[in-house]
């Protein structure tokens, strides 16, 4: 079922390359949507920051109290957790809609499919930039140290994005064919939220720590969060996420090569 010819793979590769190059599609569409969503609102895109601030204030504070955590250390940790989780979960859920939602564009003329994956990813990165402001404020209030380790956030972010890209493409292809995927993802997000160390520390799980050790999302979170808290992530999350990027892209490329040409028929 997944047998592909050399021609399929070549065309899939061309699509990926053209998709990346087509900034005129993904950037323009993302900006247009951002403008559209906040048109006629007073705060505009600032709403992204405001709603996250409220979420962090309430959730971070309450859960901190419940877990009897010291706010100075816990709040920056939870804030980053919530910010990054919002980015990851929203991207994954919207990824299910990347081709289906773009059907008017895809059935109008030939366009690289991958551009519409980047479109979703890019839009969510722009949102991430708006929510990151909240962390900066929290970091200033609780004086999170800036260390050389902070610079590791750059490779961390790159790895996060590379991994998100294959996941979104994978989900997008499957979801174009099976429309349940979107609902399936939405309902799994709550479960994933609780098995991922977003508002708790992995150590708190005690003998159940393996739950986070085998959770890919936990590792993706760690390589971006730890540097921003001034810590150097251990070797394990790096190796895990690099391996995930390689294996994920190989599998997704195979899937994409096989079904790329079929996607317009499914829309």
């Amino acid at each position: 079922m997944l047998s592909t010819t050399q021609r399929d793979r070549r065309l899939a590769w061309i699509d990926l390359r053209r998709g990346v190059e087509a900034w005129n599609i993904w950037h323009i569409l993302a900006m247009q949507e951002l403008r559209q969503r906040y048109r006629r609102s007073v705060l505009g895109p600032l709403w992204i920051s405001v709603s996250l601030a409220v979420q962090v204030a309430v959730m971070g504070f309450l859960v901190g109290v419940l877990f009897k955590q010291e706010h100075t250390k816990y709040l920056p940790y939870a804030t980053l957790g919530i910010i990054l989780w919002n980015f990851i979960s929203t991207s994954l859920m919207e990824g299910a809609n990347c081709f289906v939602g773009a059907s008017t564009y895809l059935l109008q003329c030939k366009r690289p499919l991958f551009a519409f994956v980047i479109h979703v990813l890019w839009r969510n990165l722009v949102y991430l930039a708006h929510t990151a402001v909240i962390f900066v404020i929290v970091a200033l209030i609780f004086t999170v140290p800036l260390a050389p380790a902070t610079l590791l956030v750059l490779p961390g972010l790159v790895l996060l994005i590379v991994n998100m890209a294959w996941m979104l493409l994978f989900i997008g292809v499957i979801a174009a064919r099976f429309r349940d995927v979107h609902m399936m993802l939405s309902s799994s997000m709550t479960v994933l939220f609780w098995v991922t160390p977003i508002v708790f520390y992995p150590e708190m799980l005690g003998q159940f720590r393996w739950i986070t050790d085998f959770n890919p999302l936990a590792h993706l979170l760690e390589i971006v969060r730890a540097p921003l808290l001034g810590q150097v992530p251990a070797a394990e999350p790096w190796l895990f996420t690099i391996g995930m990027a390689v294996i994920g892209w190989i599998a997704t490329f195979q899937l994409f090569s096989r079904f790329r040409a079929r996607i317009p028929y499914w829309l």
């Binding site: 247009q32 403008r35 559209q36 048109r39 008017t104 564009y105 059935l107 109008q108």
Partner: peptide, 10 residues
Amino acid sequence: GMTESMDIDA
């Protein structure tokens, strides 16, 4: 499909 994807708020 030109008009289908027009955004009425733009």
